[in-house]
Design a protein around this nucleic acid. Structure first.
Length: 241
DNA sequence: TGTCGACCTGG
DNA sequence: CAGGTCGAC
């Protein structure tokens, strides 16, 4: 499948997939391979031309949220402060992805207080342990039922203190006390308060989920790096960034 | 309501 | 220490 981008609404595949929004993509040369919705997907970009397999055209557009006029978000978010006004141009092609809510919830819960390589390793091991096997030695992201079934072996994924959180979330989804479909219908404020009611999910993670799965563009996840940069920007006459 | 230490694991 | 959160003051 082939998709032609426009300069106005550009997608930089590498920049976006390396940005820390998704943790299941790997690069081999100029081919990106990942698992989305139980399917192995591949993407190659050459300028404005993007070729892909695994997605339908519609799924591809949805995943990278290509219908969104990103410049509007940038305008609303960045134009009011001189210190960050140049960032949209610098990161041209960085898209806000639209990922699966369940996978996003677990992934960013796991992503607390650790490094990106460890995050990727945890998610890869979890998928290998109990995800459904799909093509070419790849595994789907495990359903809550499958996670619970593998409860005793979860220690092999090295989740650390996050293990009990992931078990609790899986259990609550199965027993219906977390209702993903309802969360999808909520506005930003309600979604945040619902997500914050889940053990292991705090301010930063709930904002990540809102931004990367629920399309609540007003969400603004504040992690260590953001905090550092904001502090630096407003502390003294240090250059910014 | 705001601050502070503990927390699994890996580099 | 690392792309935080929880529970106890």
């Amino acid at each position: 499948m082939k998709y032609i981008l426009t300069p106005k609404n550009f997608l930089d595949v590498a920049l976006t997939l390396e940005s820390g929004q998704a943790f299941r993509w790997q690069r081999h040369g100029d081919i990106w391979t990942g698992v989305v919705k139980n399917k192995v997907c591949r993407i190659v970009q050459d300028g404005l031309t993007v070729r892909f397999t695994g997605f339908t055209r519609e799924e591809f557009i949805e995943y990278f949220d290509l219908r969104l006029d990103i410049s509007e978000i940038y305008e609303n978010t960045f134009s009011t402060h001189a210190e960050i006004r140049h960032l949209p141009q610098k990161y041209n092609g960085l898209r806000i992805m639209h990922q699966d809510l369940y996978e996003c919830m677990l992934s960013f819960m796991l992503a607390t207080n650790t490094s990106i390589p460890h995050i990727k390793s945890m998610i890869a091991k979890l998928s290998e342990l109990c995800g459904e096997k799909i093509a070419g030695g790849y595994y789907a992201f495990p359903t809550p039922e499958r996670i619970l079934k593998s409860r005793e072996k979860l220690c092999t994924c090295k989740l650390g203190y996050r293990e009990r959180y992931i078990v609790e979330i899986a259990r609550r989804i199965v027993d219906g006390s977390i209702e993903l479909e309802k969360i999808k219908c909520m506005d930003y404020e309600h979604a945040v308060s619902e997500l914050r009611g889940v053990n292991g999910i705090g301010n930063k993670v709930s904002d990540c989920i809102c931004l990367f799965a629920l399309k609540h563009y007003e969400a603004f996840p504040i992690d260590r790096h953001i905090l550092d940069r904001v502090c630096r920007a407003y502390s003294s006459d240090n250059g910014f960034p």
